[in-house]
Each structure stands twice: as structure tokens, then as C-alpha cells.
Amino acid sequence: MAEQHFHREISELKSQVAILGGMVEGGIGRALKALREGNLAMAQEVVESDKVIDEIEVQIEEACLKVLALYQPVARDLRTVITILKVTNDLESMGDLMESIANKVALVDAENFERSPMKLGPMADKAMEMVHKALDCLLQENVRVAREVHQLDEVVDQYHAENHKTVADGINSRGDKFSLAELKLLSVSRALERIADLATHIAEDVIYLVEAKIVRHRKVI
């Protein structure tokens, strides 16, 4: 009986995480679209949605604590609850980064984004793919996809490093003509890199959930 209740609670928690993930995933997409198009209204919408994300995070956390206190789960059940707790935290951080990207829209217009020599477009695509796959592997408990996410992280890191170099070169060659917008875009690159890191965390948590191995801080997992 208690077991049944527990599993119902767990699947309810997973659904909530899926909804939270969907909001974060869509929010990041919209923030990037707003940035590409200089769409301030859409950016504002994204900033607003972060508040809802924060609320849902608190709800999930409370629900997790309730489950822990009520059922005192062990083994895989315990890992599931712990993973949900950690992933929720990561998703909330992603929400903050999404908000920070949306906030840049007011300072960077579409022209700046278009003309930037930084490879933000492909980088954003990769980061989005990672978020999508991280959520997929979490909800389907698929370790193979989790490993794919881990591999993609390096690609995004590479892009970020290149973007850094591009900006440094730009400052050197153009001096005072270097625009503020360019620097803002660099922080978008930074946000994307952080989002990719968080997606990797989620993937690592999934590996922990399924295989009970902690694989963080490892090169090869």
C-alpha cells in the first residue's frame, strides 16, 4: 500500500520536473529567439516566466522533502528522490541564465547579434540540444543519451573558448571602437556555456540514478 503511494508520488514528482524542464527548455529557446530578433516583448515574457519557474522549484523541493520524511525510501527510490532534488536545482539555475540572456535583449539589437563574429548561433543550437537530451535522458532514465550529453559539453566549451578569443582579438584590433553590445554577447556565450554545464550535471545525475555511480569530475564516463 505504502509502496503504491510512494510510486504515485514519485511519478507525480517526475511529471512536475518534466513541466519545469519544458518551461526552462522553451524559455531558453524563446530568450535566444528574442535576442536574434531584438524582440523586447518576448524577452519580457521570458523574464516573467522565471518567476513561475522559481515557484515550481520550491514546490518540487517541498514535495521531495515530504516524500523523504513520509516514506524514508532506500536504494534506487532514495536515489530517485535525490536526483529529482538536484535536477530541480539545476533547472532553476538554468532558468536564471535564461533570464539573464533575455535581459541582454534590451542592450543588444538584432543587428549586433547578426554581425557578431562570435559563433553564437551554432553554440546556442548545441546547448539547446544538450538541454533537450538531458531532460530526455532524465525522464526516460536512458544512460546512453546521458553519455551523449556529456560528450556534447566539450563542443560547447570549445565554442565558448573561441568566442573569448574572438572578443579578445576584436578588442586588440579595434580598440575604442569596440562596442558594449559585443561584451554583452560574450556574457550570452558564458550563459550558454553554463547552461551546457548544468545539462551535463543533469546527465551525470541520471547516471548516478541508474548505475549508482558518481561520475562527476571525470573526463570519461
Binding site: 517526475k14 511529471s15 518534466a18 513541466i19 519544458g22 525522464l139 526516460q140
Partner: peptide, 11 residues
């Protein structure tokens, strides 16, 4: 499978 786990678009 539960829909929300595959189609996460809230809309």
C-alpha cells in the same frame, strides 16, 4: 508513457 515526460512543451 506519460506525455509530459516526452512532450515537455507546456503549451
Amino acid at each position: 508513457q506519460p506525455m509530459v515526460e516526452w512532450i515537455r512543451n507546456p503549451e
